[in-house]
Each structure stands twice: as C-alpha cells, then as structure tokens.
C-alpha cells in the first residue's frame, strides 16, 4: 500500500466505518421490528403455538429439519408442511404419531417421541402458524 495511505487513515476507516454501519444496522433493526407484526401475524400466536414452539425446541427438531430454510438438511422443510399435508393438522399429527420406534431398516426415519394428544395438537398449531408467516413466497414450491 502506498505511503500516502497512512496507518491512521486505515484505523479511522475501521473505527468510523464500523461504527457507522452498526448504527445503520440498529436503525434497520428498529424499522424491521416495527414492520414485523404485519408479516408474522403475531396476533395468532396462541398458548398452543407457544407450547408447540417449546416442544419444537425441547426435542431438537431443528437438528434434522429446516424451518423456513434454517436448520439441518437431513429431513424435509417444515415451514410449509401444513400446506404440503393438505392444510390438515390431523395428517401432521398422524405422521408424527406413527413413526416406528426402531426406525426403518436402511432408511432415514423420524424418532418416535411419544407425544400426548395435547402435545401433538400444540406442535401442529405451531407449524400451522409458521406456515402463515409472510416469508416472501419462499419456499419456491410445495416440496419445500
């Protein structure tokens, strides 16, 4: 680098530039949090949805699945599973309920979690709520 470009100039770019973009980012975050209610439909977050999210977390579902594209890539996307299962909570619950405890020889299989009916309902409600988040038309198609 040329001698005209001094270490002090480089330092100022680092501190000044970083600080500037931290502030920009905070401003954008402020705006985003204001704009979110229209997109996340938080008015529909019921106690069941909250319970469903908790079950989602306490069984580490993200360790195999993606949800809105984030997570592990071992099992199907679940952000639109409600639609994929025909807008049918019973189909989701039936699928989770029917997983064989010992798996399927040679194939990937979801574990049997032995959820109660109340827990299954909460999970299905959580997945339904998630599917209604405005995610800019993602995923591209029903297969997730």
């Amino acid at each position: 680098m040329s001698t005209r470009f001094t270490k002090n100039a480089a330092r100022n770019i680092f501190y000044g530039g970083s600080l500037f973009f931290v502030l920009v980012f905070l401003g954008l975050t402020f705006h985003t949090t204001r704009a979110l209610p229209e997109r996340d439909h938080r008015e529909n977050i019921t106690e069941q949805v909250v319970r469903g999210k908790q079950l989602w977390e306490e069984n580490n579902c993200i360790g195999c699945h993606t949800l809105l594209g984030e997570g592990a890539y071992f099992a199907p996307e679940l952000g639109n599973v409600y639609q994929r299962f025909g807008n049918n909570k019973e189909a989701i619950k039936g699928f989770i309920r029917s997983r064989p405890p010992e798996g399927v020889p040679g194939r990937r299989s979801m574990p049997q979690f032995n959820f109660t009916d109340e827990e299954l309902e909460a999970l299905a409600e959580f997945l339904k709520w998630t599917s209604e988040v405005n995610a800019a038309n993602w995923p591209p198609n029903i297969q997730g």
Partner: peptide
C-alpha cells in the same frame, strides 16, 4: 439412514 438409530439419532 438407520446407522446407529435410535441410539444416536442424526440430530
């Protein structure tokens, strides 16, 4: 897919 299942599941 069933390697070590269900002892050490993928997640």
């Amino acid at each position: 897919g069933d390697f070590l299942f269900p002892a050490i599941p993928f997640n």
